[in-house]
Write a protein that binds this DNA or RNA. Structure first.
Length: 268
DNA sequence: ATGCCGTTTGTC
DNA sequence: GACAAACGGCAT
Protein backbone atom coordinates (compact mmCIF):
# COMPACT_ATOMS: atom_id res chain seq x y z
CA UNK A 1 0.00 0.00 0.00
CA UNK A 2 1.41 3.31 -0.93
CA UNK A 3 0.41 6.77 -0.03
CA UNK A 4 -0.91 9.03 -2.66
CA UNK A 5 2.08 11.08 -3.74
CA UNK A 6 -0.17 13.92 -4.65
CA UNK A 7 -1.40 14.21 -1.12
CA UNK A 8 -0.65 17.47 0.57
CA UNK A 9 1.06 16.68 3.78
CA UNK A 10 -0.82 19.20 5.77
CA UNK A 11 -4.44 20.01 5.74
CA UNK A 12 -4.15 23.61 6.58
CA UNK A 13 -1.68 24.33 9.29
CA UNK A 14 2.01 23.88 8.93
CA UNK A 15 2.20 23.49 12.65
CA UNK A 16 -0.66 21.83 14.35
CA UNK A 17 0.36 23.34 17.65
CA UNK A 18 -0.27 26.79 16.25
CA UNK A 19 -3.84 25.91 15.52
CA UNK A 20 -4.43 24.38 18.87
CA UNK A 21 -2.94 27.36 20.58
CA UNK A 22 -5.16 30.00 19.18
CA UNK A 23 -8.19 27.79 18.95
CA UNK A 24 -8.08 24.75 21.15
CA UNK A 25 -11.42 23.58 19.94
CA UNK A 26 -12.08 25.10 16.56
CA UNK A 27 -15.71 25.46 15.90
CA UNK A 28 -16.88 25.38 12.36
CA UNK A 29 -18.49 28.75 12.52
CA UNK A 30 -15.40 30.68 13.38
CA UNK A 31 -12.29 29.22 11.85
CA UNK A 32 -11.35 32.26 9.84
CA UNK A 33 -8.00 32.92 11.41
CA UNK A 34 -6.78 29.40 11.09
CA UNK A 35 -8.66 28.23 8.06
CA UNK A 36 -9.12 31.19 5.80
CA UNK A 37 -10.07 29.06 2.86
CA UNK A 38 -12.46 26.85 4.67
CA UNK A 39 -15.17 29.28 5.45
CA UNK A 40 -18.52 27.68 5.58
CA UNK A 41 -21.89 29.16 5.81
CA UNK A 42 -24.10 27.94 8.55
CA UNK A 43 -26.00 25.99 5.97
CA UNK A 44 -22.90 23.99 5.29
CA UNK A 45 -22.38 22.99 8.84
CA UNK A 46 -21.94 19.31 9.21
CA UNK A 47 -25.39 17.97 9.47
CA UNK A 48 -25.84 14.60 10.91
CA UNK A 49 -29.01 12.76 11.50
CA UNK A 50 -28.24 13.03 15.10
CA UNK A 51 -26.51 15.91 16.66
CA UNK A 52 -22.78 15.57 16.67
CA UNK A 53 -21.14 16.75 19.81
CA UNK A 54 -18.40 19.28 19.79
CA UNK A 55 -15.46 17.04 20.31
CA UNK A 56 -12.64 18.35 22.37
CA UNK A 57 -9.17 17.52 21.26
CA UNK A 58 -9.02 15.03 24.06
CA UNK A 59 -12.25 13.39 23.14
CA UNK A 60 -10.93 12.80 19.70
CA UNK A 61 -8.31 10.58 21.10
CA UNK A 62 -10.03 8.83 23.91
CA UNK A 63 -13.47 8.22 22.63
CA UNK A 64 -13.78 4.67 21.64
CA UNK A 65 -17.25 3.50 22.20
CA UNK A 66 -19.07 2.85 18.96
CA UNK A 67 -21.11 5.75 17.80
CA UNK A 68 -20.34 7.68 20.88
CA UNK A 69 -20.15 10.77 18.79
CA UNK A 70 -22.89 10.21 16.30
CA UNK A 71 -25.70 8.98 18.39
CA UNK A 72 -25.51 10.71 21.68
CA UNK A 73 -29.18 11.20 22.00
CA UNK A 74 -30.14 7.64 21.23
CA UNK A 75 -27.64 6.33 23.64
CA UNK A 76 -29.71 5.55 26.68
CA UNK A 77 -28.28 4.54 29.98
CA UNK A 78 -29.20 0.90 29.78
CA UNK A 79 -28.86 0.13 33.45
CA UNK A 80 -31.13 2.93 34.56
CA UNK A 81 -33.57 2.07 31.85
CA UNK A 82 -33.83 -1.58 32.71
CA UNK A 83 -34.38 -0.83 36.33
CA UNK A 84 -37.07 1.66 35.57
CA UNK A 85 -39.00 -0.28 33.01
CA UNK A 86 -41.10 -3.19 34.02
CA UNK A 87 -42.89 -4.30 30.90
CA UNK A 88 -40.47 -4.25 28.03
CA UNK A 89 -37.28 -5.35 29.66
CA UNK A 90 -37.74 -8.76 28.10
CA UNK A 91 -36.96 -7.24 24.76
CA UNK A 92 -33.22 -6.86 24.33
CA UNK A 93 -32.37 -3.21 24.08
CA UNK A 94 -30.67 -2.95 20.75
CA UNK A 95 -28.35 -0.08 20.33
CA UNK A 96 -29.42 2.06 17.50
CA UNK A 97 -27.03 2.79 14.73
CA UNK A 98 -27.31 6.12 13.14
CA UNK A 99 -26.20 7.25 9.78
CA UNK A 100 -24.32 10.49 9.58
CA UNK A 101 -25.10 12.53 6.52
CA UNK A 102 -22.09 14.49 5.44
CA UNK A 103 -22.35 17.80 3.74
CA UNK A 104 -21.06 18.36 0.23
CA UNK A 105 -18.13 20.34 1.51
CA UNK A 106 -17.24 17.58 3.87
CA UNK A 107 -17.41 15.12 1.05
CA UNK A 108 -15.32 17.39 -1.08
CA UNK A 109 -12.50 17.07 1.34
CA UNK A 110 -12.03 13.47 0.47
CA UNK A 111 -9.57 14.08 -2.26
CA UNK A 112 -6.88 12.30 -0.39
CA UNK A 113 -7.03 8.58 -0.06
CA UNK A 114 -5.04 8.48 3.12
CA UNK A 115 -4.63 10.97 5.88
CA UNK A 116 -2.11 11.07 8.64
CA UNK A 117 -3.32 10.94 12.19
CA UNK A 118 -2.68 14.62 12.55
CA UNK A 119 -4.63 15.37 9.41
CA UNK A 120 -7.54 13.29 10.54
CA UNK A 121 -7.58 14.96 13.91
CA UNK A 122 -7.36 18.33 12.30
CA UNK A 123 -10.10 17.46 9.92
CA UNK A 124 -12.27 16.16 12.69
CA UNK A 125 -11.84 19.44 14.48
CA UNK A 126 -12.59 21.49 11.42
CA UNK A 127 -15.64 19.50 10.50
CA UNK A 128 -16.83 18.97 14.00
CA UNK A 129 -16.70 15.26 13.58
CA UNK A 130 -15.07 12.64 15.70
CA UNK A 131 -11.76 11.18 14.76
CA UNK A 132 -13.41 7.83 14.36
CA UNK A 133 -15.95 9.22 11.97
CA UNK A 134 -13.27 10.70 9.78
CA UNK A 135 -11.36 7.47 9.78
CA UNK A 136 -14.41 5.41 8.88
CA UNK A 137 -15.39 7.95 6.32
CA UNK A 138 -12.13 7.63 4.47
CA UNK A 139 -12.11 3.88 4.75
CA UNK A 140 -15.55 3.64 3.22
CA UNK A 141 -14.52 5.92 0.42
CA UNK A 142 -11.48 3.82 -0.29
CA UNK A 143 -13.68 0.76 -0.52
CA UNK A 144 -16.12 2.57 -2.71
CA UNK A 145 -13.31 3.64 -4.96
CA UNK A 146 -12.06 0.11 -5.14
CA UNK A 147 -15.48 -1.23 -6.02
CA UNK A 148 -15.96 1.36 -8.66
CA UNK A 149 -12.62 0.64 -10.24
CA UNK A 150 -13.32 -3.05 -10.15
CA UNK A 151 -16.59 -2.62 -11.96
CA UNK A 152 -15.12 -0.28 -14.51
CA UNK A 153 -12.01 -2.26 -15.13
CA UNK A 154 -11.50 -3.23 -18.76
CA UNK A 155 -12.91 -6.65 -19.52
CA UNK A 156 -9.84 -7.71 -21.43
CA UNK A 157 -7.36 -7.95 -18.62
CA UNK A 158 -4.67 -9.23 -20.94
CA UNK A 159 -4.37 -5.87 -22.55
CA UNK A 160 -1.68 -4.10 -20.61
CA UNK A 161 -2.41 -0.81 -22.24
CA UNK A 162 -6.02 -1.02 -21.20
CA UNK A 163 -4.95 -1.78 -17.70
CA UNK A 164 -2.68 1.18 -17.68
CA UNK A 165 -5.50 3.43 -18.70
CA UNK A 166 -7.97 2.04 -16.24
CA UNK A 167 -10.43 4.65 -15.16
CA UNK A 168 -9.78 6.58 -12.05
CA UNK A 169 -12.64 6.82 -9.70
CA UNK A 170 -14.18 10.23 -9.96
CA UNK A 171 -16.12 9.91 -6.78
CA UNK A 172 -13.07 10.24 -4.69
CA UNK A 173 -13.26 13.76 -5.81
CA UNK A 174 -16.97 13.89 -5.60
CA UNK A 175 -19.20 11.47 -3.90
CA UNK A 176 -22.39 11.00 -5.83
CA UNK A 177 -23.70 14.19 -7.30
CA UNK A 178 -21.22 16.57 -5.88
CA UNK A 179 -18.23 18.63 -6.63
CA UNK A 180 -15.04 20.06 -5.49
CA UNK A 181 -13.62 23.49 -5.09
CA UNK A 182 -10.06 23.44 -6.25
CA UNK A 183 -7.26 25.91 -6.28
CA UNK A 184 -6.09 25.35 -9.79
CA UNK A 185 -3.15 27.69 -9.50
CA UNK A 186 -1.44 25.55 -6.95
CA UNK A 187 -3.48 22.44 -7.58
CA UNK A 188 -4.54 22.36 -3.97
CA UNK A 189 -7.86 21.50 -2.46
CA UNK A 190 -9.87 24.10 -0.72
CA UNK A 191 -8.87 23.32 2.82
CA UNK A 192 -5.17 23.72 2.27
CA UNK A 193 -3.37 26.61 3.75
CA UNK A 194 -3.06 29.02 0.91
CA UNK A 195 -3.74 32.49 -0.21
CA UNK A 196 -7.28 32.77 -1.29
CA UNK A 197 -7.35 35.85 -3.41
CA UNK A 198 -4.25 35.33 -5.48
CA UNK A 199 -5.26 32.02 -6.88
CA UNK A 200 -7.38 30.78 -9.65
CA UNK A 201 -10.14 28.56 -8.49
CA UNK A 202 -12.20 25.95 -10.15
CA UNK A 203 -15.54 24.57 -9.12
CA UNK A 204 -16.07 21.13 -10.50
CA UNK A 205 -19.22 19.18 -10.18
CA UNK A 206 -20.26 15.78 -11.33
CA UNK A 207 -23.66 14.44 -12.01
CA UNK A 208 -25.16 11.16 -10.99
CA UNK A 209 -23.45 9.31 -13.78
CA UNK A 210 -20.10 10.62 -12.63
CA UNK A 211 -19.55 12.61 -15.75
CA UNK A 212 -18.13 16.04 -15.35
CA UNK A 213 -21.08 18.31 -15.24
CA UNK A 214 -19.46 21.67 -15.02
CA UNK A 215 -16.18 23.30 -14.35
CA UNK A 216 -16.16 26.93 -13.46
CA UNK A 217 -12.89 28.74 -13.34
CA UNK A 218 -12.68 32.08 -11.66
CA UNK A 219 -10.68 34.31 -9.40
CA UNK A 220 -12.01 35.62 -6.13
CA UNK A 221 -12.46 39.35 -5.96
CA UNK A 222 -12.41 39.54 -9.69
CA UNK A 223 -15.06 41.41 -11.62
CA UNK A 224 -18.29 39.52 -11.77
CA UNK A 225 -18.23 39.64 -15.53
CA UNK A 226 -15.43 37.13 -15.53
CA UNK A 227 -17.48 34.83 -13.45
CA UNK A 228 -20.49 35.54 -15.58
CA UNK A 229 -18.65 34.35 -18.64
CA UNK A 230 -17.58 31.24 -16.85
CA UNK A 231 -21.07 30.62 -15.65
CA UNK A 232 -22.47 31.12 -19.10
CA UNK A 233 -20.27 28.43 -20.52
CA UNK A 234 -21.23 26.16 -17.68
CA UNK A 235 -24.92 26.43 -18.32
CA UNK A 236 -27.78 28.74 -17.82
CA UNK A 237 -28.78 27.02 -14.64
CA UNK A 238 -26.12 28.98 -12.92
CA UNK A 239 -27.72 32.23 -13.85
CA UNK A 240 -29.25 32.61 -10.48
CA UNK A 241 -25.87 33.26 -9.05
CA UNK A 242 -25.02 36.09 -11.36
CA UNK A 243 -27.78 38.37 -10.26
CA UNK A 244 -26.34 41.24 -8.32
CA UNK A 245 -22.91 40.13 -7.46
CA UNK A 246 -20.26 42.44 -8.79
CA UNK A 247 -17.32 41.08 -6.94
CA UNK A 248 -16.89 37.84 -5.22
CA UNK A 249 -15.69 37.80 -1.69
CA UNK A 250 -14.62 34.60 -0.09
CA UNK A 251 -17.97 33.93 1.54
CA UNK A 252 -19.74 34.74 -1.68
CA UNK A 253 -17.60 32.29 -3.53
CA UNK A 254 -18.30 29.69 -0.95
CA UNK A 255 -21.97 30.38 -1.37
CA UNK A 256 -21.55 29.91 -5.07
CA UNK A 257 -19.86 26.67 -4.37
CA UNK A 258 -22.75 25.57 -2.23
CA UNK A 259 -25.25 26.48 -4.90
CA UNK A 260 -23.36 24.46 -7.47
CA UNK A 261 -23.08 21.53 -5.14
CA UNK A 262 -26.72 21.53 -4.28
CA UNK A 263 -27.86 21.49 -7.86
CA UNK A 264 -29.60 18.35 -8.88
CA UNK A 265 -29.36 16.87 -12.35
CA UNK A 266 -32.97 17.68 -13.05
CA UNK A 267 -32.30 21.32 -12.32
CA UNK A 268 -29.98 21.58 -15.27
C1' DA B 1 -3.08 1.20 16.06
C1' DT B 2 -4.49 1.09 11.45
C1' DG B 3 -6.28 -0.73 7.06
C1' DC B 4 -8.98 -4.08 4.51
C1' DC B 5 -13.23 -6.27 3.73
C1' DG B 6 -17.65 -8.32 4.42
C1' DT B 7 -21.62 -7.25 6.72
C1' DT B 8 -25.22 -4.75 9.17
C1' DT B 9 -28.15 -1.00 9.63
C1' DG B 10 -30.33 3.43 8.93
C1' DT B 11 -31.79 6.96 5.60
C1' DC B 12 -33.52 8.61 1.39
C1' DG C 1 -33.61 -0.86 -3.34
C1' DA C 2 -29.54 2.13 -3.51
C1' DC C 3 -26.39 4.24 -0.85
C1' DA C 4 -23.35 5.15 2.87
C1' DA C 5 -22.04 5.18 7.89
C1' DA C 6 -20.68 2.09 11.12
C1' DC C 7 -19.48 -2.43 12.98
C1' DG C 8 -16.63 -6.57 13.65
C1' DG C 9 -13.11 -9.73 12.45
C1' DC C 10 -8.80 -10.40 10.62
C1' DA C 11 -4.05 -9.18 9.04
C1' DT C 12 -0.04 -6.33 9.33
Amino acid sequence: MSMDPACPQSLSCSKASDCKESSPMPVISGPEENYPSLQMSSAEMPHTETISPLPSSMDLLIQDSPDSSTSPKVKQPIAAESSATTEEDKVPVKKQKTRTVFSSTQLCIQRQKYLSIEQMQELSNILNLSYKQVKTWFQNQRMKSKRWQKNNWPKNTNDVMQKASAPTYPSFYSSYHQGCLMNTTQNLPVWSNQTWSNSTWCIQSWNREESLQSCLQFQPNSPASDLGAALETAGESHNVIQQTTRYLSTPQTMDLFHVCMNMQPEDV
